[in-house]
Design a protein around this nucleic acid. Sequence first.
DNA 1: CATGAAATAAGTGCAAC
DNA 2: GTTGCACTTATTTCATG
Lengths: 154, 154
Amino acid sequence: MDEIDRNITVALQLDGSAGLAELAKVAGLSVSATAERVKRLEERGVIRGWRADLDPVAAGCPLLVHILVTVAPGRDEAAFRKAMRRQEAVLECHAITGDWTYLLKVRLADLPALDAFLNDELRAQSGVQRVETLLAIATVKETSILPVAPATEE
Amino acid sequence: MDEIDRNITVALQLDGSAGLAELAKVAGLSVSATAERVKRLEERGVIRGWRADLDPVAAGCPLLVHILVTVAPGRDEAAFRKAMRRQEAVLECHAITGDWTYLLKVRLADLPALDAFLNDELRAQSGVQRVETLLAIATVKETSILPVAPATEE
DNA sequence: CATGAAATAAGTGCAAC
DNA sequence: GTTGCACTTATTTCATG
């Protein structure tokens, strides 16, 4: 993971459809060397895949909520986690430090869908004690572009 | 946005590198008709772009924190928002309902980097009154794949 | 929307340096 | 890692039905 790999990964996160010729310019390498780099980044698992990036509003889920959840201690939480993984509206589910047990990121079509999610999917889960819903009023920034660290040489 | 477009967008979010031939099978259309659909989805802004999906750990930012921030009311928050947009460690910044003003999603290399971020970048911002850091202990689920609503016909 | 052909562009592999 | 070339594959465009 040198400086060149960093430049390549950043460029590919910004636009993965550019092609090797243009990427080679960014990398400062030849096309074949660049292709080799990309291939190795995929093999090493740094690049997990290639995805189309959708506009959430155009995709029909303009409502964004984060939900803090407290699950009763002592219980087996496997069922809860499995349920969250299955729910496609749940984009993220993290076990967190502090007063709460989990933080969810959820995208939905509208408020009725949120109501249904909270009642039928979330509070219906056994062990769920407390729920706090943080509705996003405005999204200042939302990106999946990771700041690739120039750290570990290989 | 009919059922076919839904299938296409879901498939392209899962794997955007498959090619039109394979996508056509999923869509149940011919290759040319499928290509036309994809093109129109891009033109309509449903598909915003094509991105490489990186492994956060391999990319060198294994630490994930969500940060709740209260900004003093009455102040102009443009400066705060601009600062968050500039920080590449800040993946998301949402203005939210409830006791807090903003919710941030931040990815960092390690705890010293978190310390530096909280002190030098966040608390240094004028107007920031209260900060609560939620450290992710375990990520149960983290995806950017949107559940495309079969809603609005066009 | 399907089919098929032709033209274009891009990725892949290999060899020599 | 570079350059160049041939090989192969995919996308694009267009005509016809």
